[in-house]
Amino acid sequence: MWPILRTITAAFDVFFDLFGGTHPVVPLLVVSVVTGVVMLLVFGKTSNQQRIAETKDKLKAYIMEMWIFRNDTRVMFLAIGNVIRNNLRYLRHSLRPLVFILVPVLLIMVQLGIRYGSEPVAPGESARVTVTLDEGVRATELDVGLQAPFAARVASAPLRIDSSGEVEWKVLGLSPGTHELVLSTPGGPLTKTFVVAGEPGVRTVGAVRARGLTWSAFLYPSERPIPRDSVVKSIEVHYEPAGLSVFGIGLHWLLVFFVVSVAAGFALKGVFGIEV
């Protein structure tokens, strides 16, 4: 799994490098449009187009019926019932393509998430770093320590919480760049990237390094997973959520991705002759 994720991440790194110096929204728009088109084609190939077309026709018919026979309350309510019934049928016909679409889109989203999801720590600002241990391991008894490179500084003593199996530090960012924190554990040292904001542009910010084949490891593929035999389940840097400014308006990247990809799909469905 990791090699696949690493390859995808590397490919995205290359892609985003092409847009170095442009506004961060530009590569996001490109990814969104391409995703919309590709998923449209997948949707077309994996769905029952005839059934979807029939169901959509019925839906439109019953909506028209509500208007045409608006003076007849009985007919109107029957039409509402038929709209709901056909709407559910339409959603059901969309399930199958959804299965085919979901995995690739999630992979794309993960890549966008590690680039647009978190705001790097500003120089002079700090962030919490939390190490989560295996269940049953007492945080107060485990010999763990955190070392920071030149560009950052561990700014607090470890806070050990047995009830949640967590050890937490505060780390101060000093100079821009992607730095490595080193966590010493009984099983050997573990590293975790720590990103301090610098030049504008899109930067990979992996908030979590997790163990083995977990969902968190899938969601943050910028770092190799923690070895399975480690007592550490995850190391997380608590970055602030990132914002995306488009024409001075702050937008969540997910919203931009959703709107643009869906709009691209809808805009081009006629060109490709696909019912969605």
Binding site: T35, G36, M39, L40, V42, F43, Y90, L91, S94, P97, L98, I101, L102, V105, L106, M109, V110, G113, G117, W215, L219, L254, F257, F258, S261, V262, A264, G265, F266, V276
Partner: peptide, 14 residues
């Protein structure tokens, strides 16, 4: 947790 907000193309179309 992180994917729960997603309704992109595909699901989004529907």
């Amino acid at each position: 947790a992180a994917a729960h907000a997603y309704v992109g193309p595909g699901a989004g179309f529907a």
